[in-house]
Amino acid sequence: MEFLRPTSLSEACQLKAEHPDAVPLCGGTDVMVDLNFDRRRPEALLDLTAVPELYEWSRYDGRLRIGAAVPYTAIIEQLATEAPGLAIASRTVGSPQIRNRASVGGNLGSASPAGDALPPLLAANGEVETMSTTGARRIPIHEFFLGPKHNALRPEELIAAVHVPVASGPQQYAKVGTRNAMVIAVCSFSLALHPDTGRIGTGIGSAAPTPRAAPEAEDFLAAELADRWTAPDELPDDVVRRFGELVAAAAEPIDDVRGTADYRRHALSVLARRTLTWTWAEHRSQERAQ
């Protein structure tokens, strides 16, 4: 095995081009488990933790660019206002030790259907910025997940950053699990209200082969909210219930040790109703405050 340790993003891309089989190593919270248990023996490890560019985040034109290696702890502490859904989800990841190391880039790299950062990126309509010696690409997050643990990254590419619009309204994330710390979600759901565009964003976790959105639920709710954004009242029960049903219908869950498909669908509709109630209450109080 080789241990490659670039100190700039361009050097990292160069090394990845020379060693397309090298496994990128960031926080190591997925890769090291595989190495420790002999599940993976890559020819080379490409350590990204000495690449300063990957740890930076910035704001531009109403958007956020979050470096691939920025750990969850930094997202929680620094981005809770601009990317609330992602920050709430980050709080539910692992333990303090894990959150200090683990990154959104690693979550995208692993592309697990249970990755906690992924539903909020869908709901926020994010983009993945990749980099290689031949240039950069921006992949819409809705096109990034191709199958269980399979993403749209090419062998010569690295994930450089994720981009999300700065939140224009409330966002939420909720997951079902046996306890708060250290659980793989049985299912999870993220909701983002975008009052500036009138659009709704959703993201479902752990209930399909990949993280995915619920487009019918989004369109239904956007239509229902169209005349309600200003001077908002409480939402009628049937709207909240129908939204929950449409979110559950978008899932394609399986039975496994963590839960049955039926339970997941039921739990998703509950999470969808709950996050809608929370975000709408927050939107109403913001409108009243203005």
Binding site: F3, R5, G28, T29, M32, L45, D47, I98, N100, R101
Partner: peptide, 19 residues
């Protein structure tokens, strides 16, 4: 296996030595 790495708590079992 918790240690401080650069002043932050981490699991030493998940840090590659080269890192």
């Amino acid at each position: 296996c918790t240690v401080l790495l650069g002043g932050e708590v981490v699991c030493a079992c998940l840090v590659a030595a080269g890192q």
